[in-house]
Every structure is written in structure tokens, then in C-alpha cells.
């Protein structure tokens, strides 16, 4: 049986590419039996989704803007 430490590493790797079949099986068994690792897996999936939405958030709120100094500087540099 995997330890939680091992399972957590495999879970992170599984976010990026498919694991070998045996590893995947061992991991499924561990996650099925372990609520902490099962929570961790859900958190990783959530984190992925949340990160992707950072840009949408940005275009909706109009908080950060180029300062007028920066804008002038860029305008001069670009020469238009």
C-alpha cells in the first residue's frame, strides 16, 4: 500500500500526464481508502480550474491599469 506521501506525489504527476497502469491502480486504491488524499486530489483539480479562470476574472474587473506614466513611456518607445 502506498503511503500518503507517495500517493500525493503520484496525484500531482497525474495532473500532468498519464501514469503507468499499475501505479494508477495502486493510487486509485489508496485514494479510495484515504480521505485526506481524496481531498487532496479534488483540491488539485480545483486548483487547475481556478488558475485557468484568473484571466477571465481580470477582464471582468477593471482594477489594474497601466499608469499614465507607463502609458506615455510605452507610447514614446513604440513611436506612435
Amino acid at each position: 500500500m502506498l503511503t500518503c506521501k507517495e500517493a500525493s506525489r503520484l496525484l500531482s504527476q497525474s495532473m500532468d500526464h498519464a501514469l503507468p497502469r499499475m501505479k494508477r491502480l495502486e493510487l486509485r486504491i489508496h485514494v479510495w481508502l484515504c480521505s485526506a488524499c481524496s481531498n487532496f486530489e479534488k483540491q488539485l483539480l480545483f486548483l487547475k480550474r481556478a488558475a485557468r479562470q484568473l484571466d477571465e476574472r481580470d477582464s471582468q474587473t477593471d482594477q489594474a491599469r497601466l499608469s499614465s506614466e507607463a502609458r506615455e513611456r510605452i507610447r514614446k518607445a513604440v513611436g506612435k
Binding site: T3, N39, K42, Q43, A50, Q53, R57
Partner: peptide, 24 residues
Amino acid sequence: DGHWDHKPASWGNPFRSLEQSQFF
């Protein structure tokens, strides 16, 4: 022994947080 120092807790339904700009 390979156990979590701080066990990840349940976040309930975290996707609701994505509707809150403070979350981001």
C-alpha cells in the same frame, strides 16, 4: 511515517468560490 502533517480538509463545493472575485 509518510502520513500528512496537515491532512487536506474537505473544501465542500469549492467551485462556488470561482464566482467570487475575492477568491481570485
